[in-house]
Design a protein around this nucleic acid. Structure first.
Ligand SMILES: [Mn+2]
Ligand SMILES: [Mn+2]
Ligand SMILES: [Mn+2]
Ligand SMILES: [Mn+2]
Lengths: 219, 219
DNA sequence: TTTTATTTTTAGACAAAACTAAAAATTTTT
DNA sequence: AAAAATTTTTAGTTTTGTCTAAAAATAAAA
């Protein structure tokens, strides 16, 4: 699918914010894009209609699988161009970002794959950020502790914090294992415990346990 | 000064039309830009207000000194990117134009001058068209259309009339490219087609094609 | 020199992407 | 639980670039 420059900038910013915090709010996105909140709502509705993100009025939004895929393509283009500017054209590393902001919107797949090959398939951009490959895969596996995971986003357990018998026993008892699909439903401020939905039922997880369960977004 | 993509496309097209004919008319520009005449009038008035062209309602228009300077910068960017795509990224010559149509709008002067240096300050793009230097100077080659070329004189293809996909496809099929050595062997009065010798074989070329193939004498 | 055809311009509409100002929903504080 | 503060959305405008349909100007034909 082909997007406008503006749509692409939104997708990219939402992706980045999502990496840091969980759910993205209208105001934070407005701040990073240097736009007014009203403009964010407008575009958010448009991206929602295109099924690029999940949006519930007043409760923020997060990218859909589609949207995440698109964002990764844009990030790939951005970082490959940054690599080109720095390595081939001898730009300083603090000088490449602005130009890459424009180059990233040129969407020819052939162009980007050829550029990638020309640069020798670099894994990182000049700032050390990983460059997604042509399948959208990033070198570093993207894992988040359940504590960081935003609510209501389906995700998959991919790693546990350690191999202690006690931890594994508890996980086994709660029927959580690598590959389990779940989503965080609620957080309690009192003891920082979470309620998660797994296997069609709601269960409670302590803060200590959540800290040691790592998930990735559903692919 | 900074222009919108649309303004730049208009400036470029007007420049090219001006090279062929003299004054540019609303309808011809509409045809080359694949837009409606009403749109041309709108943009023409805007460019006139910005003093980029001289415009007299109902009597066509032509670029001002300012406008010509801007057009040459865009053409410089376009052709440098085409050179980059062909030489560094190994694109075919009939495959570079479309992508350069987008790249040409990235206006960083530093980027273009660095790209120019990286390519070794090329004088011609993959289609044999001259690349303006960073002062806007073009080095015009001494060239003759195949139509004007006398028979049995060896010559070298140095330029094609335009970058249209259809023209390039036909040239590719006939194995004619920049640098090809050939000589005109025969002309036919009936349809003004020619027979030329190229790669040790005789092939037929239509009048329309010959008009758009330019050659220089062998040096 | 009228009439007809063509070209060009105007008038009005539309979509995209932004904005301001005001209303509505949510969150926080009292 | 009510009031105040904050966040988010809606409503209405603006700019850019395009379009269609109709009017006006110019060019060509009769
Ligand atoms: Mn950008
Ligand atoms: Mn970077
Ligand atoms: Mn263009
Ligand atoms: Mn060219």
């Amino acid at each position: 699918m082909k997007f406008t420059n503006s749509e692409e900038n939104y997708l990219k910013s939402i992706f980045h914010l999502q990496m840091q915090q969980g759910n993205v709010s209208t105001n934070t996105l407005a701040a990073t894009l240097k736009a007014k909140p009203a403009s964010i709502t407008d575009m958010t509705k448009k991206l929602n209609a295109k099924k690029l993100l999940h949006y519930k009025p007043y409760y923020g939004f997060y990218l859909s699988t589609e949207g995440r895929k698109a964002a990764l393509e844009i990030i790939r283009r951005h970082r490959l161009w940054e690599a080109f500017l720095a390595e081939k054209l001898e730009f300083q590393w603090d000088d490449v970002h602005e130009i890459a902001e424009e180059l990233e919107h040129i969407s020819s797949k052939k162009l980007i794959d050829k550029l990638d090959a020309y640069l020798g398939f670099p894994k990182f951009d000049p700032h050390g950020d990983p460059i997604p490959d042509n399948k959208g895969k990033i070198k570093e596996p993207r894992k988040i502790s359940l504590l960081q995971m935003q609510t209501d986003v389906p995700c998959i357990v991919c790693q546990v914090g350690n191999d202690s018998a006690e931890l594994l026993e508890l996980l086994k008892h709660k029927k959580i294992s690598i590959g389990s699909k779940l989503s965080v439903k609620k957080r309690f401020e009192y003891d920082h415990s979470l309620e998660i939905k797994i296997n069609q039922s709601l269960i409670t997880i302590s803060n200590q346990l959540a800290k040691n369960v790592f998930v990735t977004y559903e692919s």
